[in-house]
Simulated scan of single mutants.
Amino acid sequence: MSFGYQQERVLAGVEARAAILNLNARHNRLFSAGDRAQWIATFKHTGATLTIGAQTHSRIWDAFDGGSGRLVTVDHEIDVDGVNATQHCVAIRFDSAGTVVATGTYTDVLIYERGGWYYSGRILTWDTAA
């Protein structure tokens, strides 16, 4: 049985959304574990940016402050358009005792390249922070 154009398009979108959710999970686990090198590998190979508050980092390495506590993202809204995607989700940061220390929102631009999805640009706006 073959799929029609619309079915193929829907299937590709669902597959992309699942891969982006996996990217988020991997990004969060690596951040929480303090694995800077692998965390950076969730970003586009060249030209990626990470904005936290008013500070934009083109050297993602300098923006890393993980390894203590846990980062979790929830409430993902993902829009896929071919090899490009956007995402909005809620970020929750816990300390090592499991207490919420910050909440905020990610606004992401993603790209599919080299056989996977990567962050091209992330903007993190904290609502509350300790």
Rank of each mutant, 00 (worst) to 15 (best):
G121F: 07
E77C: 10
M1N: 08
G4F: 06
R9T: 11
D75F: 10
A16C: 05
G115C: 03
H27S: 08
V10C: 05
T42D: 13
Y112V: 00
A91Q: 06
F94M: 00
C89K: 01
Y118V: 00
A130M: 10
I52N: 03
H57S: 12
A18F: 09
A63H: 02
V10L: 13
G82E: 03
W117C: 00
R17K: 15
L124C: 05
Y119M: 01
R122Y: 04
L50V: 01
V14G: 03
A33W: 05
R59M: 13
L21H: 08
A37M: 07
E113K: 01
R70E: 08
G47A: 09
R122Q: 10
R9F: 08
I92V: 09
I92P: 00
W39D: 06
F64V: 08
Q7W: 08
I92M: 05
A130I: 11
T107V: 04
A12V: 07
V90L: 12
W61I: 12
S58E: 15
V90F: 04
E8T: 08
T105I: 11
D35C: 05
I111S: 08
G115D: 02
H45I: 13
Y112F: 15
G67D: 07
S96K: 11
D65G: 12
W61P: 07
A102I: 02
V101M: 06
D95M: 07
I111V: 15
T128K: 10
T86G: 07
N84W: 13
L71Q: 12
R70G: 02
V100W: 04
G104P: 05
Q7D: 09
A130V: 13
E15P: 06
S96I: 12
D79C: 08
A48S: 06
G67Y: 02
F31W: 15
R93T: 00
V74E: 12
S32L: 06
G47V: 05
R17I: 07
D95P: 04
N84A: 14
D79A: 13
Q87T: 05
F31L: 09
E77V: 12
R114I: 03
R9C: 08
V90I: 13
D79G: 09
I78S: 01
G98Y: 00
T107I: 09
V83A: 14
